[in-house]
Design a protein around this nucleic acid. Structure first.
Lengths: 343, 343
DNA sequence: ATAATGTGTGGAAACCTTTACACATTTTAC
DNA sequence: GTAAAATGTGTAAAGGTTTCCACACATTAT
């Protein structure tokens, strides 16, 4: 049993039926007498037959495989998202090719290219927001796409699963304003991502609502990565008139923030108040536990996969190209990282 | 451009050459004149030709795809491991199907089955330790396997990438003993995993080395999951003569431990000393920062993927079935969660 | 009794590549 | 100058499925 692959032909011979019958007996489709079915199944087991996925996919024009494109497996937000997708995919009989773009449009291109070649049935993606042409190409090729967490900058006809980032940020910043804070910094990702853009929108809307003028010096949008977080935090804290509170727009930046504060010996919430976007586990493990905007992370993944499967279903039967947009509400969870500011 | 797939035949026609020539021109193998190559490439681009992965795989008996089997994406240890595998896989031109078994041998079986059908070239796996028969079957079928983080209970001829868990636990517990602790609890995963088993070994060896008798009541090995962590922590702390220090055998259990301590109002290290296995980011974020056994997590992933690729290489050329075992040294990182015990 | 239907099976085509083989032409070697 | 090697191209087979079509037979309806 070294290098020979057992094919369905072998099974057929062994069971004394034709290839076609063997296939029908195993796949269930079409007619097959009880007796032959039994015989074929026995033969298959005896020979250790494993149907060939590639051959199957070639014939069926379907791989039962989807691509999952995220930026970073290590970021717990995406890890949870991925676990949701994975769980649902498994339920529905799909397998998942994992791609981590590290926020690089170039990597996204490469991955997108290979996913097309692999003929995945669909893609669930946290896109960098770039590569509109390639995304369109994938769709034209018949790949179903669901964007999750972020939309494209430009218009693209696809399904989308989001959290209301504007509201999340608005709630967080309103809360700080209500506590009396006026100099509230924001440490944010790039505005080229809709998450970054929308969270800044929420921040601005809260200020507008409270009639507080914006100070551009308190606004930092560089990237969602840790190193930038450190830089942005340093810049904000080095300001001649530093903020009394900071809204940090994701968990990675929050982590960086905490390290910077510790290094500077600043205490939360006594010296500075903090609200962080993403309620990942460590946020409630540190002391004081952080007030955070919670997103239904696994649900995001589950919903995306469900939506993808539905589109796949719909696409094969009728050509109904109604694209859906699911928006979850975020949730501000009050903990101990903010104190009222009374001057 | 709706439902028609562009095949290499179309490209060939468009370029005015035969299918074979088109293939050669694109894949580089074999002879092809500069001029035809140019023409074919142009035709391919013009028609938007994407080679079919499934067809390619069928012919080549190779999918350029590997399976990555871990227990849980959300556990940062495995997330880092996965990111290492992913990075290296990408470098080497492999794609990764992600499988999360949730420690269930049954899920492992299912995934293993589909990976075989998908004809992945190889598998990098954190195995539950069960399903020896299926693993053997996969190997017989020609799938290259690399076990990482854990070995199988029983003998299996495969490559393995590990951390010296005995040493890791030994160092951690020795450290506590050196500080004067005698009643040291261990909260551990199941002994059916080699990690669980070895970490308990290390614990016992340290006690033996220091001539301190073991108290079985202080030894808990249930599972590596959070809920069990809570239970185990409760049991240990409810003991009539509770431990003065606890060695927690992975980061998930550590998280549970911390929550339990907080709930009970116990303070680290004043009330209890703590060492945790796995130096994941939150371990140094909490206060006090925890003393931890650090594993080279991404390296584990990178090395596994490298080893897999090498085996794949070797397997195609010569039948050299020398299996390698790579063992990394863990590293005890001293922080502020242990205090000397002077009675 | 005959026509119509239902059931079980086999032959062969199709899915899309790559490549062994055959052939023709050009280059190199002596 | 010719023999041998190198280069470029085409034909056809193979890789492992699924399924359309045709056929045979059994059952039911008319």
């Amino acid at each position: 049993m070294k290098k020979t692959t057992v094919t369905i032909k072998d099974v057929a011979n062994h069971a004394g039926v034709s290839q076609a019958t063997a296939s029908r007996a195993l796949s269930g489709g079409g007619y097959a007498s009880h007796e032959t079915k039994r015989r074929v199944e026995e033969a298959a087991k005896e020979l250790g037959y494993k149907p060939s996925g590639p051959a199957r996919s070639l014939k069926l024009q379907r791989t039962d495989t989807i691509g999952l494109m995220i930026t970073d497996v290590v970021n717990p937000f995406y890890a949870y998202l991925a676990s949701g997708v994975l769980e649902k995919a498994n339920d529905l009989g799909f397998h998942v090719i994992l791609c981590a773009t590290d926020e690089e449009p170039e990597m996204e291109r490469e991955y997108l290219e290979v996913l097309m070649e692999k003929r995945v049935d669909g893609i669930v993606a946290v896109s960098t927001g770039q590569n509109l042409d390639l995304w369109q190409e994938a769709i034209d090729l018949g790949t179903e796409v669901v964007l999750v967490d972020r939309e494209m900058e430009e218009k693209l006809d696809v399904n989308v699963v989001l959290v209301d980032n504007v509201k999340g940020a608005y709630d967080a910043v309103s809360y700080l304003l209500k506590l009396g804070h006026r100099r509230i910094g924001i440490i944010n990702g790039p505005l080229t991502t809709t998450t970054g853009f929308d969270r800044l929108q929420g921040y601005k809307q809260a200020f507008a609502q409270y009639g507080v003028p914006l100070d551009e010096a308190l606004i930092e949008n560089v990237s969602f990565k840790g190193e930038s977080g450190t830089d942005m935090a340093d810049r904000l804290l080095d300001l001649p008139d530093p903020p009394t509170a900071i809204f940090v727009a994701n968990n990675v930046l929050g982590e960086a923030m905490l390290f910077v504060l510790r290094e500077r010996g600043l205490r939360v919430p006594d010296d500075i108040s903090l609200v962080v976007f993403d309620d990942v586990p460590w946020v409630s493990l540190v002391s004081p536990a952080l007030t955070a905007v919670s997103q239904p992370t696994r649900e995001l993944g589950i919903a995306s996969m469900e939506l993808l499967a539905q589109s796949l279903e719909a696409h094969t039967s009728v050509e109904n190209s109604l694209y859906r947009k699911i928006i979850y509400k975020p949730n501000l969870i009050l903990r101990d990282s903010c104190r009222p500011l009374t001057e």
